[in-house]
Design a protein around this nucleic acid. Structure first.
Lengths: 246, 246
DNA sequence: CGAATACTTGAGAGGTGTCAACCGGAGTGG
DNA sequence: CCACTCCGGTTGACACCTCTCAAGTATTCG
């Protein structure tokens, strides 16, 4: 199924130093190299369904996806935004707890479930890295619950932009160009709303309000420039010393 | 400081099979025995402050506490309710990310930070258990974000009671007595509100509404009987097969 | 160029927050 | 023993924020 997706050598992999393999030495990388396979999904694909069996664990190599849960009546909450180097799947469980959907074309580096579970057991470098990543995600999830529980709609949108800008910068290893920060939103207004616990209309209104107030500038619906990042962070309810938010 | 708190042998510890030590063999327990110390806090004490150094990792042996974050303007969000066997502290970090406050008298089983970090590195049974616990907490935090982001006030209160009843039952290893489920709330209405992203008034109103509708019965502010647990679960927005919630 | 989709904006409804009064039990002191 | 106070909880009235429903605009893609 992935015959047209040539494998990249782990040493040249863009997520080499951030993914679950980050601490592996060259011997361990050789093992991973032997077990891994790539799979590419187009934008808008379902990578897994809540409650369905999960045959592989994956790292996102390129692209962007969401993890979400949908209630019977259609209300949906996104519980995680997945960017390159993020891990999909939960060792010790054979089913997916959430729906995972690609926002852009996504390239996964996958390992068969049983083989990866064995690797976790036998490779401290992997188990350790997995623990660190899980702890980081736990902190991020808890920080996000402050956003969901206590921020206003305007603050939520600002907090999302702050968080996304930081994560994109860290993924792309980057710039704080003098002329402000530019980000491209991989999400629709509806997907943002599902992440923020808002409706898409309220989300759109708050984006417009932030633009009107000069906190952000937009060249298209998805392209945003933040002239004064500090100001946006304040709009997001962060205390002066950057206390809150991922 | 804890000279009046006699150590319980790990083998007789009430959280022996659920805490971070759950997978340890007797040799490993002997090591823990040598390194551990107990500390008891009264109700309403601050076990740690967000941003402050954390000298020990702890497991809750008895009692109940909250982890929360407070914004500059006083808005507070509780990001975790800690019950016996829950772990406090984050390996790899020397400061606390959250305020931790005891709701009842709390007895902690503590390990000095550096010593515990070394244990994690050298004892796969501990590292493994820590990973499993962290993954469980991550799932719980993500599930809770659905509550915060998408449920109504009434559903939030119901979801909290469902979640608390399940956790208390698992802690106390217990009963589903024919005559419904009884739970004692360790939290004030204000603490519940902070956990649910509501005001205390709205929380109180929804508790009253659930009582008025016969979903719960109360013998005091803190003592609640749930005559039909399934009905409460439906009020909490769970789908029929118990899809949602921790 | 036309259709579909995404986004924006408006008007009104409804749910939750705010502010305030009141209730009831526990502890205290006369 | 009773009055008083304190504190947590309850309830009411109203304001405000976000949602809902709807129309209209922009963008993308065939």
């Amino acid at each position: 199924m992935s015959k047209f997706t040539p494998l990249v050598a782990c040493g040249n992999c863009p997520i080499r130093h951030n993914a679950v393999c980050a601490q592996c030495d060259s011997d361990e990388l050789a093992t991973l190299e032997r077990l891994k396979s790539y799979k590419v999904y187009p934008a808008g694909a379902r990578l897994s369904d809540a409650g369905m069996p999960l045959t592989h664990f994956s790292s996102i190599v390129e692209g962007c996806a969401t993890m979400s849960k949908t209630l019977e009546d259609g209300r949906r909450q996104t519980v995680g935004l997945l960017l390159p180097s993020d891990f999909i799947g939960r060792p010790g469980r054979t089913t997916s707890a959430y729906d995972v959907e690609s926002l852009t074309e996504v390239k996964l580096c996958r390992f068969e479930r049983v083989e990866f579970e064995r690797l976790v057991q036998t490779t401290p470098h992997i188990a350790n890295r997995l623990l660190t990543m899980t702890l980081d995600e736990l902190d991020a999830a808890r920080d996000w619950s402050v956003v969901l529980g206590r921020l206003t709609a305007r603050e939520k949108v600002a907090a999302f932009l702050v968080s996304l800008a930081r994560r994109l910068a860290s993924v792309q290893g980057k710039r704080n160009a003098g002329s402000g920060v530019m980000i491209h939103l991989p999400l629709s207004r509806e997907a943002m709303a599902d992440h923020l616990g808002l409706t898409l209309e309220t989300t759109s209104r708050q984006v417009s309000a932030l633009r009107r107030d000069g906190v952000i500038e937009t060249s298209s619906n998805r392209d945003i420039r933040i002239p004064d990042f500090e100001r946006l962070a304040i709009e997001a309810g962060e205390d002066d010393d950057g206390g809150l938010i991922v």
